[in-house]
């Protein structure tokens, strides 16, 4: 039992896919200008990762190792097509905001990384937990970055199904408070992640890299 719970909680801090394993940055940062696309993206990645892990884990004894990469790509691509079609049907606005980044889940290194490193050698249930765990680790970073950027950049928070909430009260603006327009620009996502890594590594010293 404790081994299974470790599969779930490990990737959230000590073995976080973004800040420690450095996987899946590609599609992570571009969707963090607002909170809503970040949340939708996180849910999509968790779903694809967990399902792909289970499928590959079920097939693990029948896949010849020479063609495993292609098999993995096909499984992932099929799942991503499903997610993309569902998004287009149920929330076309978010789908438009995410644009090509849903498709880029296919080449998200987290997926290949976890399939190669975990699902190919473990039972379906453990692989499922590993998928959920790593997906959540990815989701947490995405949501932190998106919250910081939207709060400082536009003074609002956008939640799915609720819509835009104004967090900074109007009176602040009358006193001369300005939104930090820099936060909306793409490079700030990288700097925010850099700062998250800084904070995390000063809390857990064992993650510090040798020079």
């Amino acid at each position: 039992m404790s081994k299974n719970s470790k599969l779930l909680t490990g990737p959230i801090n000590l073995n976080n896919p973004i800040t420690v394993q450095v996987l899946g940055i590609c599609s992570a940062l571009a969707v963090t200008v607002k909170l809503e696309p970040a949340i939708v993206m996180s849910i999509s990645v968790i779903a694809v990762l967990a399902l792909a892990n289970v499928i590959i884990s079920l097939l693990r004894n029948t896949i010849p190792s020479r063609i495993r990469i292609i098999v993995q790509l096909v499984v992932i691509a099929a799942l991503v097509i499903l997610v993309d079609q569902i998004l287009k049907a149920y929330s076309p606005d978010v789908s438009k905001q995410l644009s090509v980044f849903v498709g880029l889940i296919i080449t998200n290194c987290i997926l290949m990384g976890r399939l190669e490193a975990f699902a190919l050698g473990n039972k379906p249930w453990e692989s499922f937990l590993d998928g959920i765990g790593n997906g959540s680790g990815y989701a947490i970073i995405l949501i932190i970055v998106a919250t910081v950027r939207e709060l400082l950049g536009s003074g609002t928070l956008t939640l799915p199904a609720v819509g835009e909430i104004k967090v900074i009260p109007e009176s602040f603006y009358q006193f001369g408070y300005e939104n930090n327009g820099l936060m909306i620009l793409p490079p700030m996502a990288l700097i925010v992640v850099g700062i998250i890594i800084w904070v995390q590594r000063s809390k857990t010293r064992e993650l510090i890299e040798e020079n």
Binding site: L190, I191, G194, L207, I208, E209
Partner: peptide, 13 residues
């Protein structure tokens, strides 16, 4: 704590 990957992120930014 910034060594390696952290400073690389900030430099890229």
């Amino acid at each position: 704590p910034l060594r390696g990957i952290g400073i690389t992120f900030i430099a890229t930014g």
